[in-house]
Computed example of a mutant assay.
Amino acid sequence: MGKKVLVVDDAAFMRIKLKDILNKNGYEVVAEAANGEEAIEQFKSSQPDLVTMDITMPEMDGIEALKAIKQIDGSATVVMCSAMGQQSMVMDAIRAGASDFIVKPFDTERVIKALDKVSQ
């Protein structure tokens, strides 16, 4: 089976789109979450190989969730997802331990390339 992925985004249609891309390219989506707090719980219970994490979400944003996940598992692989024009947030995410980032709207090729790169 492919790498297990936790998909985190507050927009259901974004999770659906990302799941579709991942499933068609040999990844297995084992869990999803709509905010950072859910992401941490799902990370603990599903033990994914990698996480795609939206930056801007209610309850707890992606950067706070990233930091918490990194405390649980320092070797966790987290790829941040952000809309255009959030460069400073992306830099904060990289400093906090993100492995890479993908820009929305999702380009299938870029998503797979990023995930293949970080999951080797």
Rank of each mutant, 00 (worst) to 15 (best):
Gly2Arg: 07
Lys3Ala: 12
Lys3Val: 00
Lys3Pro: 02
Lys4Glu: 12
Lys4Val: 03
Leu6Gln: 01
Leu6Trp: 01
Val8Asp: 01
Ala11Asn: 14
Phe13Leu: 13
Phe13Cys: 09
Arg15Glu: 10
Lys17Thr: 14
Leu18Trp: 06
Leu18Pro: 05
Lys19Ser: 15
Lys19Glu: 15
Ile21Arg: 03
Leu22Ile: 11
Leu22Val: 09
Lys24Thr: 11
Asn25Pro: 08
Tyr27Gly: 05
Tyr27Pro: 00
Glu28Met: 10
Glu28Gly: 10
Val29Glu: 01
Val29Tyr: 03
Val30Ile: 14
Ala31Arg: 06
Ala31Thr: 02
Ala31Leu: 08
Ala31Met: 09
Glu32Tyr: 07
Glu32Leu: 04
Ala33Phe: 05
Ala34Ser: 15
Asn35Pro: 03
Asn35Gln: 12
Asn35Glu: 10
Asn35Arg: 08
Gly36Arg: 04
Gly36Lys: 06
Glu37Cys: 00
Ala39Glu: 05
Ile40Gln: 00
Glu41Gly: 10
Glu41Leu: 12
Phe43Ser: 01
Phe43Cys: 00
Phe43Asn: 04
Lys44Tyr: 01
Gln47Met: 14
Gln47Ile: 09
Pro48Tyr: 04
Leu50Arg: 03
Leu50Ile: 13
Val51His: 04
Val51Glu: 01
Ile55Gln: 02
Ile55Trp: 00
Thr56Gly: 11
Glu59Tyr: 00
Met60Arg: 13
Asp61Val: 04
Gly62Tyr: 01
Gly62Pro: 05
Ala65His: 02
Lys67Cys: 07
Lys67Gln: 13
Lys67Tyr: 05
Ala68Met: 10
Ala68Asn: 13
Ile69Tyr: 02
Ile69Phe: 05
Gln71Met: 14
Gln71Asp: 13
Gln71Arg: 15
Ile72Gln: 12
Asp73Trp: 03
Gly74Asp: 09
Gly74Phe: 08
Ser75Gln: 15
Ala76Lys: 03
Thr77Arg: 11
Thr77Gly: 01
Val78Phe: 02
Val79Phe: 05
Met80Ser: 08
Met80Arg: 03
Cys81Asn: 09
Cys81Val: 15
Ala83Lys: 08
Met84Cys: 00
Ser88Val: 09
Met89Arg: 14
Met91Tyr: 11
Asp92Pro: 02
Asp92Gly: 08
Ala93Leu: 06
Ala93His: 07
Ala93Gln: 00
Ala93Pro: 02
Ile94Asn: 03
Arg95His: 12
Ala96Lys: 01
Ala96Glu: 01
Ala96Met: 08
Ala98Lys: 06
Asp100Phe: 05
Asp100Val: 07
Asp100Trp: 07
Phe101Asp: 03
Phe101Thr: 06
Pro105Ala: 11
Asp107Glu: 15
Thr108Ile: 10
Glu109Cys: 07
Val111Glu: 04
Ile112Asn: 09
Lys113Gly: 15
Asp116Arg: 13
Lys117Asn: 14
Lys117Glu: 14
Lys117Leu: 11
Lys117Ile: 00
Ser119Asn: 15
Ser119Trp: 09
